[in-house]
Design a protein around this nucleic acid. Sequence first.
DNA 1: CTAATATTGATAACTATTATCAATATAACA
DNA 2: TGTTATATTGATAATAGTTATCAATATTAG
Lengths: 143, 143
Amino acid sequence: MGKTEARDIFFNYIKEKGLRYTKQREAILGAFLASGKHITIDDLYTAVKKTNQDIGYATVHRNLKLMTECGLADEIKIGSHKARFEQKYGHEHHDHLICMKCGRFIEVHDEKIEKLQGKLAEANDFVPMRHKLEIYGMCKKCR
Amino acid sequence: MGKTEARDIFFNYIKEKGLRYTKQREAILGAFLASGKHITIDDLYTAVKKTNQDIGYATVHRNLKLMTECGLADEIKIGSHKARFEQKYGHEHHDHLICMKCGRFIEVHDEKIEKLQGKLAEANDFVPMRHKLEIYGMCKKCR
DNA sequence: CTAATATTGATAACTATTATCAATATAACA
DNA sequence: TGTTATATTGATAATAGTTATCAATATTAG
Ligand SMILES: [Mn+2]
Ligand SMILES: [Mn+2]
Ligand SMILES: [Zn+2]
Ligand SMILES: [Zn+2]
């Protein structure tokens, strides 16, 4: 479901920029597409290592940035924690409820809020391009 | 307008924790209350230095954290930039429109959005405690 | 005034990210 | 299929921001 298209997007982006499609890129892309939500660079590095033990951390880092540039990945920074990435291609936009106790991320979406954000920006002569809404609190399990 | 009360809050917090009220604390508090919006630790450090040239960076940092703990300051992290602080006591809650070109912060508030956020949390069995809404885009001046 | 201990300022340590660079891999093209 | 220009890699250094360490000093209760 979308893996081939995702690969095409990455491959085409690489080619358009005059870059080269390497075994490492293929491996990193594959591991990313197989990954769960909100992974860190370390998570992906560990995952890729399983099939490609000679991979370097910097290579994973660089390619995660490339995947972000071409729209396959989305970078999210929470509090003082390290950067996390989630799949973007084929995934709807959403915001996050973040549990302050267990760290769980709950993905949410509210079209009314999205619309009001647009109006709010407009009222301030501001052209919105992207936004981040994070609600911190306590999840069901943690109380 | 509120400066004395703000000082009381800090002083009482210090005392309650069995800490000591020092010249440095007084100077840092004063500089913070006189500061503008969204300052960095460096900004405050520079400001305090003017009247207290022997102050150390670590001392400013530590006390900014204390002021945050007792509710006088609010820490905001934008993108990959360094931490910024704004006055919280006597200031209403607000969110930010952030210009991606000039870096300007526009402070906004929308009660309807706030209410919908509460509902959204509730619908997910989540108890919200604080939230962060940042809309990135282009401000009026920058286009 | 004394004593216990919190604070300070300099700086080291730490964390995460990004840059550097020589060796190697890729891909266009002869 | 070679040749060649150059993009990529992996190790590691550098950087940026934050936080910890520690000896000297300041504060405060008694
Ligand atoms: Mn998500
Ligand atoms: Mn603000
Ligand atoms: Zn939880
Ligand atoms: Zn602007």
